[in-house]
Simulated assay, not measured.
Amino acid sequence: MSHVTTAQPDGTPTWIDLRVPAYDRALEFYGALFGWEYSEEPTEGGRRRRSATCLLHGKPVAGITQAEAITGFGWNMHFATADCDATAKRVTEAGGTLLKGPEEIAGQGARMAVAEDSVGARFGLWQSHTHIGCEVVNEPGSLVRNDMRTPSPGPARAFYSSVFGYTLDLNDVMPDADFTFLRRPDGHEIGGIFGTPADPASTSPASMWATTFEVADTDAVAQKATAGGGTSTAPQDIPYGRIATLTDPAGNEFSVITRL
Score class of each variant (00 low, 15 high):
Asn252Thr: 12
Phe181Leu: 11
Gly165Ile: 05
Leu27Tyr: 07
Ala244Val: 09
Thr92Gln: 13
Glu41Gln: 13
Glu103Phe: 10
Gly46Thr: 14
Phe179Leu: 12
Ala222Gly: 03
Asp17Ala: 08
Leu55Ala: 13
Glu44Thr: 15
Gly46Cys: 04
Pro239Trp: 07
Arg90Phe: 04
Pro235Leu: 15
Ser142Val: 03
Gln223Ile: 02
Gly229His: 07
Gln223Trp: 00
Gly154Glu: 15
Arg50Asn: 12
Tyr166Arg: 03
Thr218Cys: 10
Ile16Gly: 13
Lys100Asp: 13
Thr203Leu: 07
Glu253Pro: 00
Ala225Tyr: 04
Gly191Phe: 05
Cys134His: 01
Thr71Val: 07
Ser204Glu: 15
Gln108Leu: 14
Val91Ile: 14
Ala216Ser: 14
Lys59Ile: 02
Ala106Thr: 13
Glu37Leu: 11
Glu93Gly: 06
Ala115Gln: 03
Thr130Phe: 14
Ser202Gly: 09
Asp85Gly: 10
His78Asp: 14
Thr5Pro: 00
Trp15Ile: 03
Cys54Lys: 03
His78Ser: 13
Met112Thr: 15
Met148Asn: 10
Thr245Ala: 10
Trp36Leu: 06
Asp85Asn: 13
Ala113Gly: 11
Thr167Tyr: 02
Gln108Ser: 13
Asp17Ile: 05
Met208Val: 10
Ala156Gln: 07
Arg90Cys: 05
Thr14Ile: 01
Ala206Trp: 01
Arg49Leu: 11
Phe29Asn: 12
Ser202Gln: 04
Met77Leu: 09
Val20Cys: 09
Leu182Gln: 12
Arg149His: 12
Gly120Phe: 10
Ala7Cys: 03
Arg111Glu: 03
Thr247Glu: 12
Asp199Ala: 12
Glu41Val: 15
Phe194Val: 02
Asp217Val: 01
Leu98His: 06
Thr130His: 13
Ile238Ser: 06
Asp117Pro: 02
Lys224Tyr: 06
Ile70Gly: 10
Ala110Lys: 03
Ala244Thr: 13
Gly31Leu: 05
Gly141Met: 00
Gln223Tyr: 00
Ile132Asp: 04
Ala156Asp: 11
Gly187Cys: 09
Ala94Thr: 08
Ile105Met: 13
Leu99Tyr: 06
Pro249Cys: 15
Val136Pro: 02
Arg111Leu: 00
Leu33His: 04
Leu98Phe: 05
Gly101Trp: 11
Ser2Tyr: 06
Phe181Val: 06
Ser142Arg: 00
Gly45Arg: 08
Ser39Tyr: 12
Gly31Ile: 03
Ala156Gly: 04
Phe29Thr: 10
Val137Gly: 00
Phe159Thr: 03
Ile105Cys: 05
Thr130Ile: 10
Leu56Phe: 00
Asp17Ser: 08
Glu253Trp: 07
Ile105Tyr: 10
Gly228Thr: 02
Thr92Phe: 07
Trp75Cys: 01
His3Tyr: 14
Gly72Phe: 06
Pro239His: 04
Gly109Leu: 09
